[in-house]
Nucleic acid binder design. Structure first.
Lengths: 198, 198
DNA sequence: TTGACAATAGAACGATCGTTCTATATCATG
DNA sequence: CATGATATAGAACGATCGTTCTATTGTCAA
């Protein structure tokens, strides 16, 4: 029974191309698609790709290169918690996001930091969270910034009172700081990321 | 002065290829690289690509396709806040992360949710945060889950006391819940994402 | 059994790929 | 000026790309 024919479906083909894309970081050629879906002719691939194109799953750019219409790593944005949240089974979906694009506006001037300490605990920033810091950005009142205070780098709220600047922790244990001359600001916190189940 | 010659550097070429990759979701061909870096011959591109290859910036897979050794959207992980945090100027960097890969273990069984309400405020999960929920995963003691309680979907700590299950908010305003028959769990919270400056 | 349709195989084709070669232009150095 | 190194241009090449064509196979209904 080695030649048992399996009914090929659009979803199968899509999944296999998606898997290839995740593994290799690029779209497969027609020859490669032939291999991964188990056919021996490129014309068959052409046949299936045409289906994926008219189904709106794949698209071609101006040069004829294939790409997914939606990022295959993207997640469905399912709604809001609390008020009559639609069951995931209903699949009433709204949007799609790629975190790399969503979180990072300027990759060249941004960097990551692992949080130590509890000075921003009341702002929902905990130990071991990752924060995305953007350099070369002047802070506005209320921003969370990364600054050097007494030789240590720490995160604080940036408060501007008239001409004066106050650095304020989001933890009542720590008193506000009125910096003297040497206020060094490394950047502004743009995002916070926390991962459970590492 | 239209033919003013600009000194071409490796960094320039890398940046332009990176920009193309971000815009198009794929690597450019040699002809396209010629266009974007402003030369008229593919052999010149070959020259520069060879430099990028030996510099460890690009690589070739088994089929000869180009790719970046590191995700061009990835950020530098600069260290830890607080204790002698190395200045970003020093650039003593440690690692690199792509958030899509870092946060999403099983794209097919995960979805996104925008948080409403303050029931998990003490766990550092605020209104308008995005949470990544993974379905088909049975919760363990201490996990944060998405559950249906009294017809509303909400997030709670999942506590197991012997055979009994308790759902506990991270906010003293809300009392713990001991569910009766109908405990519906949509999934387990795998990650939290918060973006400032939208 | 026959006919219609869908899926596959295989060959041929022009276009474009990346490579390699030679030749020219620019610039710093002695 | 002479020289060598570096960067660019342009042409030629085999390989592979995706497309298109014809032919074969398998399935299901009449």
């Amino acid at each position: 029974m080695s030649s048992m024919k399996v009914k090929r479906t659009l979803q199968d083909v899509e999944k296999k191309i998606t898997a290839f894309f995740r593994d290799h970081g690029r779209m497969p050629t027609y020859s490669e698609i032939a291999e991964i879906i188990g056919v021996r002719s490129k014309s068959v691939v052409h046949f299936w790709v045409a289906k994926l194109l008219s189904a709106g799953i794949l698209q071609k750019d101006a040069k004829g290169f294939l790409s997914f219409l939606r990022n295959p790593r993207a997640l469905k944005l399912a709604g809001e918690v609390c008020a009559g949240f639609p069951s995931p089974a209903e699949e009433e979906l709204r949007d799609i996001i790629s975190f790399d694009e969503y979180l990072i506006r300027n990759p060249d001037t941004s960097f990551l930091l692992s949080v130590t300490g509890d000075s921003m605990i009341d702002a929902g920033i905990q130990e071991k969270d990752l924060v995305i810091v953007e350099k070369n950005k002047d802070p506005k009142d209320g921003d969370i910034i990364l600054a050097e205070v007494d030789g240590n780098w720490t995160m604080k709220y940036f408060r501007r009172k008239g001409k004066m600047v106050i650095l304020e922790a989001a933890n009542s244990k720590y008193p506000p700081i009125v910096p003297r001359m040497d206020l060094r600001i490394a950047g502004v916190i743009m995002a916070v990321v926390r991962k459970y189940h590492k």
